[in-house]
Simulated assay, not measured.
Amino acid sequence: MLAAYLIAHQHQHPGDYKSHDLLRAMKPCATFGLMFSRARIKFIEFLTPLHKDFVLRYPEKMTDIRPPDLDEACRVIKEILKDIHLVFKMKGF
């Protein structure tokens, strides 16, 4: 969704959203009016190295991490998606 948000706003630096770096994709979103709470940023900060290293795709890589509670993780992700959807709607997308 972060990539979709940047693409929809014609962000001029594809490297920001064509990598698996969620923080790199999140940061320029603020330029286009999408900002997250500190708690959501902290969650994205937690996920970024896991996403970049494909840990979530290959469970055998999850030996040294403590994943958050699944229900909590799903709740936060749903909130992030709602935030993005809301800003899209506000901007007429």
Rank of each mutant, 00 (worst) to 15 (best):
K78C: 13
F46Y: 13
C74M: 14
K61N: 14
T48M: 12
D21K: 05
M26N: 03
F43M: 08
F43E: 04
L50I: 12
L47I: 07
A30P: 00
A25I: 10
I77T: 07
I41Q: 06
P49G: 07
P67S: 08
F32T: 00
L34F: 06
L81Q: 13
E72N: 08
L56C: 06
K52M: 12
A25M: 09
D16G: 06
T31R: 02
S19D: 05
Y17H: 05
L70P: 09
A30R: 06
D71K: 12
A39F: 11
I65H: 00
R75E: 05
A39W: 15
R38F: 05
V76T: 09
P59M: 13
T63G: 06
I41A: 07
C29G: 03
F32P: 11
L23F: 11
P49S: 09
G33T: 08
L47R: 01
R38N: 13
D21L: 06
I80F: 04
R66C: 12
E72S: 05
I41K: 00
R38G: 13
F32L: 06
L70D: 10
L70H: 11
P49W: 03
D69I: 05
M26L: 12
C74H: 08
E60T: 13
D71Y: 15
F46S: 01
P49T: 07
P68Q: 03
T31C: 15
H20C: 04
F46Q: 04
Y58E: 11
R38W: 02
A25D: 00
M26D: 01
P28G: 03
M35T: 14
C74D: 15
M35G: 15
C74Q: 13
F32Y: 10
F46A: 03
I65A: 02
A30M: 08
Y58D: 07
S19F: 10
I65G: 00
D64H: 11
T63N: 10
K78Y: 13
R24W: 03
K42W: 12
P59H: 14
S19P: 02
R66N: 10
D53L: 11
P68N: 00
T31Q: 14
L56E: 11
E45P: 15
K61T: 07
E45A: 01
T48H: 06
M26S: 06
I80L: 09
Y58G: 09
K27G: 00
K61D: 13
R40M: 07
G33D: 04
H51Q: 07
L22V: 05
K52A: 12
K52W: 04
A30F: 05
I44W: 00
V76M: 07
S37E: 11
K78W: 12
I65Q: 05
E72V: 11
A73L: 04
K18I: 14
K78R: 15
E79T: 08
A39N: 10
K18V: 08
R66A: 07
L50Y: 04
T63E: 10
D53M: 14
G33P: 00
T31E: 15
P49M: 08
P59V: 15
D53R: 15
D16W: 04
P59T: 13
R38M: 03
H51Y: 02
I41L: 06
L70T: 13
P67W: 01
D69R: 12
I77S: 07
I44G: 00
G33S: 12
L70Y: 09
L81E: 13
I80H: 04
I80A: 04
D64M: 06
R57T: 01
M35L: 08
A25S: 10
